[in-house]
Nucleic acid binder design. Structure first.
Lengths: 166, 166
DNA sequence: GTTATTATTCAATAGATTCTGAATGTAATG
DNA sequence: CATTACATTCAGAATCTATTGAATAATAAC
C-alpha cells in the first residue's frame, strides 16, 4: 500500500503525462519506478497501481522503447526488474523530439507548400496572414531544433533561463 | 470545393491542434476561417469541412470562448459570420496559459508536497532524485511564467531566439 | 523432457471522446 | 402573431483509445 503523498504524485504525474503526450498508465508506472530506490518487477507494478499484468507488460515495454526505464536483473531471481533513469529531463527531451517530428513538422511543411502555390497578388490578405504565421512557426521550429539538438546543453540552457536571477 | 493545398493545410493544422490540445474539428475550422479573407458562416463551415451543423456550432462557440475567432455581422444578412484573429500567436498563447494551469501546476504542486514530507535521511536516493526533478520543473515553471506573462514581449522573445543569426 | 514461473501478445471489452441530427430556441420579417 | 431563417442544445451513435485477461511463449529448475 502506497503512502498518501506518493499516490498523489503518481496521479498528477499521470495527468501531466497527457500533457507530454504519453498515456496515463505509462506515466503512472514511470512515477512509481521513479519513487522507488530498488528495482521493481512487473507484478509489483500491476498490484500497486491496480492495473492488469498485460497492461503493465505493454507499458513497461513502451517505456523501455522510449529509453525512459531499463530492465535489470537481480541475481538469484528469475523475474525482470526495472529501474528508471534518475534524470527525468532525458524523458522530456526524447518525447519532445518525437512529437515535434510527428505533429509540428508536417503542419509547417503543409503551410510552406500552401504558401508556395498561393499567389501574393490574387489574395493579399490571406497571403500576408499565412506569411506571418509561417514566420512565427519557423521561429518556433528553429528554437526547438536548437534546443533539441543536445540534451546536456539544453538542460543547462533551461536552468540558466529559469534561474531566479534572470 | 476547396483547393488541394488548402485541404492539406487544414488537415495538418487539425493534427497539430492535438499537439496544442484542441480537438481536430476546432483546429480544422480555425484553419478554414484563417484561410478566408471574408467572414464565414456556420453553414459554409459545415458544408466545406463535411461536419454536422451541430458540431460546427459547438466548435465555433468553443473557439469563441478561447478568443481565437470572433463573431461579426454583415448588414442585410441575418446569419452570424466569423473571422479569425489574423495573428495565430494569440491562440497559442492562450492555450499555453490554460494548459500549464491545468496540467503542469498540479504536478509540480504534488511534487513539492511530496518532497516536504519525504525525509531526506530515510531514503536518500529517492529524495535526491525528487529534489533534482523539482529543480528541473521549477526552472520550466519560471520560464513558462515569464514567457506567458505578456503576449507581445514573448512574441518578440520568440522571434529573437528563433532568428537565424542566433 | 517435464514442470513451474514469469513475460508477452492480442482479441475482446470497457471507457472516453467526438460527432450527428432531430428537437428546440431565438429573433427577424412581413 | 405566424412564418421563415438561422443557431443551439443534447441524447444517442459512432469512433477512437486504453485496458483486460486468457492464451501463448519463453525460460529456468528439477
Amino acid at each position: 500500500m502506497l503512502p498518501e503523498g506518493y499516490e498523489q504524485f503518481i496521479e498528477s504525474w499521470g495527468s501531466m503525462g497527457v500533457l507530454w503526450g504519453i498515456n496515463r498508465s505509462m506515466a503512472r508506472i514511470h512515477a512509481f519506478i521513479l519513487l522507488s530506490d530498488e528495482p521493481i518487477d512487473l507484478d509489483t507494478v500491476a498490484t500497486e497501481l491496480s492495473i492488469s499484468r498485460g497492461n503493465a507488460s505493454m507499458s513497461l515495454k513502451e517505456l523501455r522503447n522510449w529509453g525512459i526505464i531499463k530492465r535489470v536483473h537481480l541475481s538469484g531471481d528469475r523475474r525482470d526488474f526495472y529501474v528508471t533513469e534518475p534524470d527525468v529531463w532525458n524523458m522530456l527531451f526524447k518525447i519532445g523530439i518525437e512529437r515535434k517530428k510527428r505533429e509540428f513538422d508536417p503542419a509547417l511543411g503543409a503551410l510552406r507548400h500552401l504558401l508556395s502555390e498561393t499567389d501574393a497578388d490574387t489574395n493579399r490578405e490571406v497571403h500576408g496572414r499565412l506569411t506571418e504565421l509561417q514566420r512565427t512557426l519557423a521561429a518556433m521550429d528553429r528554437i526547438m531544433d536548437k534546443f533539441l539538438k543536445n540534451e546536456k546543453i539544453s538542460k543547462a540552457m533551461l536552468e540558466f533561463l529559469g534561474s531566479k536571477k534572470m
